[in-house]
Design a protein around this nucleic acid. Structure first.
Lengths: 198, 198, 198, 198
DNA sequence: CATGAATGAGCCTTCATTCAT
DNA sequence: GATGAATGAAGGCTCATTCAT
């Protein structure tokens, strides 16, 4: 019995996971308005109606997608090694953030930086996710500053600038390929490091 | 007679100007998809259909809005004094750009930085406008670098970062008031100047 | 005074004439639904609104256009020489009718043969015009039959068939050019003459 | 299972069939421009939007309507006995064609003979259908001519004339009833036979 | 659980018509 | 007389949402 309930539950979770992942992809690619539930359903090989069995509506699905996307992204940054000089750690974080933005969520810009186009209910949640995301960078910078390795004019302004620049990277890196793209990402990371130079 | 023609023309121009201004506001606030012609018309106290007397369609209206907004903005930056040390001139440009973004086009972000949500035909034009806009900054930086007053890791990356950060300023400055807002804008400008520090 | 009134009247008539002629052209080319008053106005280099000074609305203009077109067409056929053997006269009439249809009113089909797409008020009038038009051919045929030069299975059926075939000529002759077109029209006329062969 | 799939499919087909039939009726009655999807929906007692579940748009629905109508019609003619003297076979074909036009597709005229009012995409298809339709008659005539039983001035012109006359039959036969209508159709068929008389 | 089907609101666009100037 | 301007009613299309099966 309990076994069964668990199995059923696991199956449901797995299904929800797949739906959310697909939705995140599409919302990321095309934005909230540009993504039709039909598209999500089609990519999942189910019908539109089925989605309503798992989510109350488009907004809820979008919320879950953002949640997932934001959490995954932050998690990957949080998993990075936390030792060594602050500058090196920050450089690595920036580089990884840029790479994720360019390669995996080319339109995360829409998810994180233009919250106004999302239904009201989602905006607050987006802000929260962003704050947690922010913390990963803020901590390193703060440590670096405390240790005298880094210096900033203003912590908030610096973080805003960093995020802004990184999130827009896809807009001008996506069309590059191979080495050229890697180099562009390196250039951006190096450029941004000047913001915290002592 | 000629007077009359002129008067009529002036009146039409004025009307077109108002429509475009209103459209720019709304497109800025809600993005392309989020803005219905109905909304634009309503804010102008006319009916949807009337807009078609002046513009062939939503795209053309959006194009005009972008055009106007972009040109005005660039023009104001181009009018700034072009003498003195590069660093000072650049600082002034950044500060002015930020002020315009925050105070007048709080949602220009959507017009300039998320081109993917715009119809294909408009994206190219947006890119062009942005390029011209870009040139204002690029020129000063290049001169400064040539004169040894400034230094950049990479010109393109630097410009992208500058623009990205400035355009997003409204997202975190708009809710501040008075002095606090001024200080935040100063902080951002100062922070960004580090990107070109020799 | 009287002179003036006359002059004014003549001017008005001339203007009405031009409007109707233009409307006839366009209705002929594109049909009732496919023709916008804007188009008519534009071709006349006036504004849409002006048309309402001369006609109460689209229907009335269309009525006048049909009237004119129908009358002109019939008049041209009525002006043809009325002497000689019936067969020759009929052959000439058919040939001329086809030529007018192909060269001048390529879409008269829409005016004469599909009356259902016209507003109710116009359909009756169209039928009348067609009847008068019909008479031109009917008379010659009747004379020919009476004189034993021609023979028909049934007068009405023959006339319907003649008109139908001639009116549709544009559909398959229009795309031909020069001699080929002339030959096609001759072939059709000759073919149709078999319908009245003794 | 398979049963179910079949049942669902059959139901869908049946629905599509009804929609197409209704659309054909209305397009036939009022032409392409004169028929609003709203009208089609209303006659089917559904809402406009529902039609889009089955057809991508007005054009596609119109295409299906034409297709069905054209195919059915041609099929019925192709099924007629293909033996006996050419003249007799042709006479039978003409008579049947006229009967179908008058009794079942009184407005086919608009579908087949006024292609100019149809969107470009459909015109080509209409032409194709008409060509296939044409072939039924063309074959018999060609055989008859080869056998010396029939004679034509020009094959193309003859076929055009035949089709034109037959398709317009409804315009002047529809209002007749019973025997009178039958006689009118006979008269037309007999009249048209003169076109191929040796 | 999932599907097919249907709905209804909303959007862009066209156009005949009206009217003040 | 003519123009510029505005209106309002359609009409085509999309899509989130609902629901019976």
């Amino acid at each position: 019995m309990v076994r069964d309930v668990n199995r059923v539950q696991r199956k449901r979770d797995e299904r929800v996971r797949r739906i959310v992942a697909t939705a995140a992809e599409l919302f990321g690619e095309r934005g909230y308005d540009g993504t039709a539930l039909e598209d999500v359903a089609e990519r999942l090989d189910v019908t539109k109606g089925s989605l309503y069995y798992y989510f109350a509506g488009k907004d809820e699905l979008a919320a879950a997608a953002i949640e997932t996307l934001g959490s995954d992204w932050t998690a990957r940054l949080e998993e990075m090694p936390a030792t060594g000089p602050s500058a090196e750690r920050l450089r690595a974080l920036l580089r990884e953030h840029i790479a994720i933005a360019v390669r995996e969520y080319p339109a995360a810009l829409r998810l994180f930086l233009v919250p106004d186009s999302w239904p009201d209910a989602l905006r607050a949640r987006i802000r929260e996710l962003r704050a947690r995301h922010d913390l990963v960078f803020r901590r390193v910078i703060r440590e670096g500053v405390a240790a005298g390795e880094l210096a900033v004019v203003d912590e908030d302004a610096t973080l805003q600038a960093l995020h802004a620049a990184m999130s827009q990277a896809p807009l001008w890196c996506s069309h590059l390929a191979g080495d050229a793209q890697d180099r562009a990402m390196d250039d951006l990371a190096d450029t941004l490091m000047k913001l915290v130079r002592a």
